[in-house]
Amino acid sequence: MSAVAPARPSAVRRTLTTRPTAQDVGFVAAARSAAVSTLVIMGLIGIFLLIGAWPALHSQGWHFLTTTEWLPETGTFGIASLLWGTILVGLFALCVAVPLGFGAALFISEYAPRSLKGPLVTLVDLMAAVPSIVYAMWALFFLQAHMLTIAQWLSVHFGPMLPFLRVQTPDSPSSYTSSAFIAGVAVGVVVLPTVTSIMREVFAQAPIGEREGAIALGATHCGMIRTVVIPFGRAGIVGGIMLGLGRALGETIVVYAIISPAFGLTTRPLQSGTNTIASHIASRYSESNGVALSGLLGAGLVLFLFTLVVNTLAGVVVSRSRSGASTEI
């Protein structure tokens, strides 16, 4: 039978089509245009900043990034000191927000009794919703007074060993006011809920199967967290830190309220006086025009790109889930 069977005609591939309803088409179009518009708005902001900043960037060239002074009247201005101050404040903010956020996230996700867990999650979310100006007032009128003592203690006790903790007149409390350190601590409090919230979310997703596996092997709760929860949440920890940094770099009003503007690449963050890009723009834009305003837009462009990169990296890290190594069978 098979010997005489005729050769099969080669199969013709069919075109598979689906015919969406008008409702589908309309809904997809609306959703797509909403999604695209966010990208367009983002792009327009970048283009606007670039166009606005062009005269300043053109006149200063690369010096815009390396000049520490801001003297638009004389034609020399750059953002080196602002960038440095921004990074300093961001780092101090992380020093506060990361350990506190990590601990708080672990407590909420792993140790808090059920009756406390919900309220704590809500509270952290509420903290993130409090406007910065409220934090700014609190930092200015309350936190700063208390941080002075700490700053002075640090400087007096560790300054002799660690040069960057020294200030010019260690005995005078006023040497410590309005510093990058105090601004950083205040910004750290502002970004704390962001960091906590992201870390808590990934910790809570650690698979129950692996948790029970560790516990059934005789692990302590702490051992289980070290073996299962933290390795699982590593991407979230890094992502949380970077998103916190992204917010800290752009934080404006809190820094503006606390610091006294100073230009120069300070190596003494406890010493009064610093400046960040965001705070500098806020303090100068109303009195600037011409090339000075263009310079501010240039500073804004740098901040825009900087935070964009940090946040994108954070997003990449967070979204890089463990799917490739999941335990799904």
Partner: peptide
């Protein structure tokens, strides 16, 4: 205990998975 759904520590090596019980205790 062995569970219904296999739950090795997915990013740990096979070698370390076997020794995980000792490490955890």
């Amino acid at each position: 205990m062995v569970f219904q759904k296999a739950n090795p520590f997915p990013t740990m090596s096979i070698h370390d998975n076997v020794l995980a019980g000792l490490a955890l205790t």
